[in-house]
Amino acid sequence: MASPADLKYTRTHEWVRLDGEVATIGITDRAQTELGDITYLELPEIGSSLESAKPFGIVESVKAASDVYAPLDGEVIERNEDVILAPDLINSSPYEQAWLLRLRLTDSAQAESLLDAAAYDDFAGDAAPH
C-alpha cells in the first residue's frame, strides 16, 4: 500500500507532516505492521528539545521494544495524550489519530533531507509483512 503522498518520511520509519515552522510526527504504517500489537508508548515532555536522528521515545509491542527517532531538530510543543493512553491507536490509525508529537522546528530547511512518499516506499520495499 502506498504511503500518504502529503507526508515526508525517514529511513527509520517515522512520518512528518510539515506546516511552516511546525512539524507533526508519527510512525509509519509499515512500522506499526512490523511491530505488531502496540501496548506501550513513552514520549518526551512538552518543552523538550529533539535532535534529528536521536531517539526521543519508546514504542513497545507485545514482542519487542523499539526506539523512535527524531526526524528533525525542534522543540516539543504538543504531545498526543490520547495515544499514550491508547497506544493501539498506532495500529489502527498511524497517520491520523496516532500522531505523536508536534515540534517547532529549529530550521525548517532541514526537512529537505526527508524522503517523499515514493522514495520511502521504494526504500521500505513492498515486502511489508502482512
Binding site: 527509520t12 520509519h13 510512525i27 512500522a31 511491530l35 507485545v62 514482542k63 519487542a64 523499539s66
Partner: peptide, 11 residues
C-alpha cells in the same frame, strides 16, 4: 525504530 530487543525472535 524496529530494533527489537524482545524475545523470542529478537536474536
Amino acid at each position: 525504530m524496529i530494533e527489537a530487543e524482545g524475545r523470542p525472535e529478537a536474536a
